[in-house]
């Protein structure tokens, strides 16, 4: 039943194919050397220096509660939540510390809610529910000559 191709006259073809296989393996091996730069340590790129952006004057700061601030700086848009819990201003990043969704201030429940996995943060950014591992990131700010500046990295 099982006829095979071990006939006379096929040696040339067999030798050729076997040489072809070996040659392609060699080419593959040498070609792999071209991938060596992959293993060279990469530079993460210089992280932008901290820069302070004037947002508004200090009288626009929230007397109590939370104020959402949107601004653009060098063609990048930023959103910051300014909260005033007990007379002290805190600038909070809206990026959830769980998986990076944008949290929203919920004035009815007095908390920041994450729409993705239900993390909740109080007015100071402390975790009060959900899977978030850390409080919201606090951003540096300064008040100079009555103007309010927020520190951002571009």
């Amino acid at each position: 039943m099982l006829r095979t191709q071990r006939n006379k006259g096929h040696e040339g073809r067999r030798d050729f194919l076997s040489a072809l296989v070996k040659a392609s393996l060699a080419v593959l091996g040498l070609g792999g050397l071209a991938g060596l730069p992959y293993f060279y340590p990469f530079s993460t790129g210089k992280e932008g220096a901290l820069e302070f952006v004037r947002v508004f004057d200090e009288y626009s700061l929230p007397r109590r509660g939370v104020k959402k601030v949107d601004f653009t700086f060098r063609d990048q848009s930023f959103r910051v939540y300014l909260s005033n819990a007990n007379g002290k201003i805190i600038a909070l990043s809206p990026t959830c510390t769980h998986l990076g969704c944008q949290v929203r201030w919920n004035p009815f429940k007095n908390e920041f809610d994450c729409p993705c996995h239900g993390s909740a943060f109080d007015i100071t950014g402390k975790v009060i529910g959900g899977p978030a591992p850390r409080p919201l990131t606090r951003l540096p700010y300064k008040i100079v000559n009555g103007d309010f500046y927020i520190g951002v990295r571009t």
Binding site: G35, P37, Y38, Y40, F42, S43, T44, G45, L99, G100
Partner: peptide
């Protein structure tokens, strides 16, 4: 996730 972004953007041929 950060390391995957690095592979995509920073590593040579990543």
């Amino acid at each position: 996730y950060k390391s995957v972004l690095e592979i995509n953007n920073a590593v040579w041929g990543g």
